[in-house]
Design a protein around this nucleic acid. Structure first.
Lengths: 358, 358
DNA sequence: CTGAAAGCGCTTACAG
DNA sequence: CTGAAAGCGCTTACAG
């Protein structure tokens, strides 16, 4: 570990020292509040004056002190975002959408990661995150025990994919997704559909499971015992090995794509043909297209979910008092079924067959 | 879209209104700075007094106003984080590590997403992000034109995976990774190794390419024309189809796992056996284990990279003046080769063969 | 169109 | 161990 330590001053001031409006004012020969007007883009400034101020700002590298502004106005331009397992499937996509939407609306996003999706973990994260933010977006609620969630008082909050909480919610229509998956597999000729669900404590998993169950019931099919994974590919693999050992399994609905990847591997290893012997459908449509065979999956509109969350939150923020304007039906965004080769032998990418049409 | 709009007041105050130290002080019968002492955990407070204050804080739900504190102390507890394509492979893992490390050190992370990895895009993001943060972590620099990067003056900055910039750097040892990949494939018997690189403008891709080239050169092997993807699975698929059409291709090093997924699909579709006909190695080791066949890949220690970035940044922040203490050799974190079935026919998961040992 | 005054909530010396 | 005073940098009325 050889470390060449050199000094390379970047100016006369220490790190934290930055030009103030007062200094800009002095340089431009105006008062501080004229600087403020220019900084905030107000139009009651003589063009010539504005020029002088802008020039002085540029020369001093001025940027308004966010803390002072927040203190004075009482408004924060920070939105708290609580998430966990960013690397998991859809979470990163939603965060991406939240960030760009927030920025477009003039807000910064303060990201706090929770240890897991339990109520305790999220509560802890919310305590840390609530200071100095205009509102809170909570992602990754993974618990059925939503009543253990302690929401900060006096702060707008939206929670993705929750239910039964008195806060606005935006999320995927899990039930609709599961319905599409099961009906697609039944339409493909399977007598029934096996399920690899998420953790039993997961709200989302529960919703997908309930819907799966209802659709099978409505169709008068046998309802197999669902298996539970933890959303990881490995857990899907383990579940897949169980299902691969059962010759009666004709179709599997897997509650997310990562687990579906594991299921596919287990089926390959057992020599089961996909989809001829077993048809598989995943959920999320992340990386599904380049699994082998390409995985039929439910595409979530993560961008719409992220945008919807920010919109619902800012609606609250804009409300002068503390009425929960958004206490309403959850806003559900329907996923769409993207059919690929893992569930139908006839679906073959056209590009892949060029030059050797059968 | 039926929306039930109900009012549900959560207290007498509007959203933004929170208890102040003054109010806590009045309730506890002390002065505001005693409240401040308690809030900051100073020990020069009589235990009995502390109790009264803590009680009052709890009753009013007091939390110090972050903006006021930041303004007064001149210190920010925010770290700016600039990233793009959070959903891409390793980025989310690094961000996760950065968040938890930052929080453990008492900092919040303000996340800004850039449109892409170009110098212009990152410059724009930095302008927005530099206000009110103690320092900046820049992720996702994807341009070879690092000299177009305009770093904010008077602000500590660390950039992941950069080179030739006068700021501290922590990143993956790309050259070492590529070396391991190529040598592994050559050791497997391939006459040479084809490359599916990232974009030509990517610094990381360039480093992997250079190393690939050098290792082949040193081994006296033919150097095939590298193909360039854009890191996406689809671009890997397109490159894979070209390579699959060439019967001379025996081994492929793909610069990330997503593209490798596309390459595998193209090889499957062309009927090439993996690894008997073509051996494949990816990079990042994200989701590699559950591709089919399981993909040999270079595992990056994303957590170490994230922690290293925060550590390097806070080292700067702690420096009283603006010397760049960390202007040193980049801190490189070596990836490790995880060998799986995509590169060696002998590697078969033990668990998968239970009960039918050949 | 521009400026003097006041204050957001906190913490840092300084007294006692 | 506790409190009165001052000020961080900005913006919001209010004058002119």
């Amino acid at each position: 570990m050889s470390e060449v330590s050199t000094s390379a001053p970047r100016g006369d001031l220490g790190w934290g020292r930055r030009a103030t409006a007062k200094e800009v004012a002095a340089l431009a020969g105006v008062s501080p509040q004229t600087v403020s007007r220019v900084a905030n883009g107000l139009d009651n400034v003589l063009p010539e004056t504005r020029e002088r101020v802008l020039d002085a700002m540029a020369r001093l590298g001025y940027a308004p002190n966010a803390a002072a502004r927040a203190l004075r106005t009482g408004r924060s331009t920070n939105l708290g975002l609580i998430a966990f397992q960013l690397s998991r499937t859809g979470e990163a996509h939603i965060i991406d959408a939240i960030c760009s939407t927030a920025r477009a609306r003039g807000y910064d996003v303060v990201l706090t990661t929770a240890a897991d999706g339990s109520a305790e973990s999220l509560n802890r994260a919310m305590v840390g995150a609530r200071a100095g933010v205009a509102g809170l977006v909570v992602l990754g609620l993974e618990t059925v025990a939503v009543n253990h969630l302690r929401l900060p008082a006096n702060l707008p909050v939206v929670i993705a994919d929750s239910r039964g909480l008195s806060v606005p919610t935006v999320g995927c229509d899990q039930a609709e997704g599961a319905r599409l998956a099961v009906e697609h597999l039944l339409a493909g000729g399977a007598r029934t559909v096996h399920l690899v669900a998420g953790p039993e404590t997961s709200l989302q998993s529960r919703q997908r499971l309930d819907s799966w169950c209802q659709v099978l019931l409505a169709a008068g099919r046998e309802i197999p015992t669902p298996l539970h994974g933890d959303w990881s590919a490995e857990s899907g693999y383990l579940a897949g090995r169980q299902l691969a050992a059962d010759a009666g399994v004709e179709a599997i609905f897997v509650a997310n794509d990562e687990m579906a990847g594991g299921v596919l591997r287990a089926l390959h290893e057992a020599g089961r043909r996909i989809p001829e012997d077993v048809a598989v459908v995943g959920f999320d449509d992340v990386d599904a297209e380049y699994l082998w065979p390409p995985l039929t999956s439910l595409r979530q509109d993560f961008r719409a979910i992220g945008e919807g969350l920010v919109a619902a939150l800012l609606e609250q923020v804009a409300t002068p008092d503390d009425r929960v304007v958004g206490l309403r039906e959850p806003r559900l965004i329907a996923p769409t079924l993207v059919v690929r080769a893992s569930s139908t032998p006839t679906v073959v990418p056209v590009t892949a067959r060029e030059g050797r049409k059968s």
